[in-house]
Design a protein around this nucleic acid. Sequence first.
DNA 1: CATTCGTCCTGATAGC
DNA 2: TGCTATCAGGACGAAT
Length: 323
Amino acid sequence: MPELPEVEVVRRGLVSWVRGRTITGVEVLDPRSIRRHALGVEDFIGNLEGATVADVVRRGKFLWMPLVDTAGGGRAADAPESPRPKVALMAHLGMSGQLLMQDREVPDEKHLKVRFRLSPRDAMPAQLRFVDQRIFGGLFVTAMVPTDDGGPGGLAESPLPLIAEEASHIARDPLDPAFSFDLFYRRLRRRRTGLKRALLDQGLVSGIGNIYADEALWRAKLHYARATDTLRRAEAERVLASARDVMLDALAAGGTSFDSLYVNVNGASGYFDRSLNAYGRAGQACKRCADVGIQASIRREQFMNRSSHTCPVCQPRPRNGRW
DNA sequence: CATTCGTCCTGATAGC
DNA sequence: TGCTATCAGGACGAAT
């Protein structure tokens, strides 16, 4: 389940393989993976063929490649005076999406949805492939529009003062150097909802999915139903710091096990085996309570049509939403 | 306006 | 064995 750390691992892996290369061919094997592209698959392909990838950037879980025309003899994107990108190839990995660099000899993956052929470069793989079993993810082309908030952020190496239009409603993530806690806290307090709902709202704070929401709440000793409009500043700081910490841990784990030749979303899988304290641990002991000699087991409940994992002892359900 | 809920999708697994 | 039911969940758009 790619959340922020996994998407960032993919971005870092992808950038050195695709930046400056030209898309020479696009093959859409399953049109369902071309989402939100109103003008259809033919237009999608037409926008991409002949364009050069200028960068790979991210906002929250949205990942995109700004594209520049390859006019006048194929000048590379990183050449001086390179033109500003007008459009970008946008990707969202959804639940099961992968972006893979593959040599042309490698047989098609079972769930291969889209194949991009790239201009040759040294010994680099010739193809970028989008593989997606459950089709919650997708690709589309979107306009690059000006932004006054300093660019995409999301740990991008060279943020442009432009953002992909379809990601402009997404808030910054907790790892983004330009993330504003004050803005987050002001908006959080204005809401009348539960804390986990707010954490999962990508327009308020991005990059957090079901797994890291449960982990951040566990670390912060807060319950998912805690009312946002009474949340104290210290509590909000605690849950944000927890989210940041758990995602940094996952990012570090993903980074170390990441094979740069094989860009995928499983880079952080080792992390899940060892380091989760709440998610997926229903019925098992709460490690923090066990450390102080208390017996408590993680409880799984349905909330928002997904499962939520809490320790009933150290994350007690709030009364009246307050505490 | 803000908030919540239904929908998209496939494969693994449980139960009969 | 082989069928059906259930579960997993990100994000959008419809409904409230």
